[in-house]
Computed example of a mutant assay.
Amino acid sequence: MGIAFRKYHGLGNDFILLDNRHQPEPLITPEDAIQWCDRHFGIGADGVIFALPAQGETDYTMRIFNSDGSEPEMCGNGIRCMAKFLADLETVETGSARPHYRIHTLAGLMVPRMEPNGEVTVDMGIPWLLAEEIPTTLAASDSKVIDVPLEVAEKSWQVTCVSMGNPHCITFVNDVAAIPLETLGPQFEHHPAFPKRINTEFIQVVRPDYLKMRVWERGAGITLACGTGACAALVAGVLNGKCDRSATLELPGGNLHITWNEADQHLFMTGPAELAFTGEA
Rank of each mutant, 00 (worst) to 15 (best):
K7V: 08
A233G: 04
I28Y: 12
D68W: 15
N66S: 02
E119D: 13
T200L: 03
G227Q: 07
N255I: 11
H40L: 14
P180Q: 09
V148I: 07
M110L: 14
I43D: 00
L184V: 09
L52G: 04
L224D: 02
Q187A: 11
M269G: 02
T136Q: 07
D19V: 14
T61L: 05
A220M: 06
T58G: 01
I79V: 14
A83E: 00
A230H: 04
G125A: 06
A153Q: 10
V111H: 06
G254W: 09
P112N: 11
L52P: 02
L109T: 02
A230M: 12
I258L: 14
A4Q: 15
G56S: 04
I64G: 10
T278E: 15
E93T: 12
T223W: 02
T223Y: 08
H266E: 00
E31Y: 08
D244P: 05
D38Q: 13
D38Y: 12
G221Y: 08
C75P: 00
N255K: 15
S96K: 15
G44H: 04
P30R: 10
F172Q: 08
L251F: 07
L106M: 13
F172K: 10
N199T: 03
T58P: 02
A273D: 08
V120G: 05
H168Q: 05
F41T: 06
G78D: 00
E132L: 13
E201C: 10
C75R: 07
L129Y: 04
T29E: 01
S143P: 01
V92H: 14
E90Y: 12
M114I: 13
A51I: 01
I170Y: 05
L150I: 05
C231I: 01
E154W: 09
M124R: 00
A83I: 03
G10K: 11
D68N: 12
M269K: 04
D244A: 15
P180F: 14
D59G: 09
G125R: 02
F50C: 08
R197F: 01
F188R: 07
C75Y: 03
H100I: 06
V152Y: 01
C243I: 09
P135W: 06
D14P: 09
R98M: 11
G69L: 11
R80Q: 07
T160W: 05
T121L: 06
Y8G: 10
D88M: 15
E217W: 09
M82G: 04
R102F: 06
N66K: 11
R63N: 02
F41E: 04
